[in-house]
Design a protein around this nucleic acid. Structure first.
Length: 323
DNA sequence: GAGTAAATAT
DNA sequence: GATATTTACT
């Protein structure tokens, strides 16, 4: 069932989640319901900086921690190394009371959370670049997500390729093989690693570059700016998946020791998104967004701290196409 | 200098 | 245990 290229493209656009449909996986996480369940006192539901995350111990800093510079003044730039020092702790959430919030959040690169949506964007970029031109640098530029570093993309790309490889092997049928036992569908690939990837549809071209005769001529589209203005609700499936995953996570770890979707959504089907309210009035300037991208950095950064894992900061980027 | 691959840390 | 980050090699 291969759709036409153009058709695919159309679908591509449509499948892009609209900002309203999107729900950052790293919401405040704690819904009133859940909060009650755990006796968590959420002072201000509107304030994402809820003190829910208490970090008793300081997160073990990386072994190669350089001499901590005076936190008073911020280095000019060069966010090459996310890890700076203990200043990790303060950020957006915990440091709400600290007072001064600084561009520091740009300098520190906590931990990028590849949300299904973010990953989708990644896939889109790769798809349009062509698997052959899909290199970290280019992908990063295409994604135009502020806060996203080449390392991030490279790392993710690496994982993604592995995933594709697996898919090929599984669906490829036959040839070679090896492996044995693979009668399952591609979707039955590894549950863990593929979970994220499975969330985003993988362009067919990826799996079979050119089955017929025409070489992969690349779809040389001007890369239409992803005008995230869709009115489609195709995300329901994903939403459900995420919800399910979240539920599972909660069931497994009541302490939600990691980022999960906006579980606990009230039966009303109404979610509280305090985040949407805080539109990024000023996208942090990265060390250098060299080329103007088709899509301005319509991403907001958000820092969530997960304590259970040892106080690890997580950076979550999610689209805010409210342009 | 960039990209890919593998290893390590959280 | 899984994911993301970091390091090393090509």
């Amino acid at each position: 069932m291969r759709e036409d290229e153009s058709n695919w493209f159309s679908r591509w656009e449509e499948e892009l989640p609209s900002p309203e449909e999107l729900m950052p996986l790293s919401q405040t996480l704690i819904t009133p319901d859940l909060a009650l369940a755990f006796d968590i006192r959420n002072n201000n539901p509107n304030n994402p900086s809820s003190p829910q995350n208490q970090q008793p111990p300081q997160p073990p800093q990386p072994p190669h921690t350089p001499p901590p510079p005076p936190p008073s003044s911020l280095p000019p730039a060069t966010p090459t190394h996310p890890n700076s020092s203990a200043e990790f702790a303060d950020s957006a959430d915990l440091g709400s009371g600290a007072g001064g919030e600084e561009p520091a959040r740009t300098l520190k690169r906590p931990r990028l959370v590849w949300t299904p949506q973010l990953h989708k964007r990644f896939v889109d970029a790769v798809a349009h670049l062509g698997i052959k031109n899909a290199v970290p640098k280019t992908i990063m530029q295409l994604m135009s997500v502020d806060g996203l570093t080449r390392e991030n993309v490279a790392s993710h790309l690496q994982k993604y390729r592995l995933y594709l490889k697996r898919m090929q092997g599984l669906s490829g049928g036959g040839s070679g093989g090896g492996g044995g036992g693979g009668g399952g569908l591609a979707a039955s690939a590894d549950p863990a690693t593929d979970h994220l990837f499975a969330s985003s549809p993988v362009p067919a071209h990826f799996l079979h570059p050119h089955p017929g005769g025409r070489p992969n001529s690349e779809h040389f589209m001007p890369f239409v700016p992803v005008a995230l203005q869709q009115h489609h609700h195709q995300q329901q499936q994903q939403q459900q998946q995420m919800a399910a995953a979240a539920a599972a996570a909660v069931a497994a770890h009541p302490q939600y020791h990691r980022q999960v979707g906006h579980f606990g959504s009230p039966p009303n089907g109404q979610f509280e998104h305090p985040f949407l309210a805080r539109q990024s009035s000023q996208p942090v300037h990265r060390m250098g967004a060299p080329l103007h991208n088709p899509v301005p950095g319509s991403y907001v950064e958000d820092l969530e701290s997960a304590n259970a894992t040892g106080g690890r900061k997580v950076l979550t980027l999610f689209p805010t196409g409210e342009d």
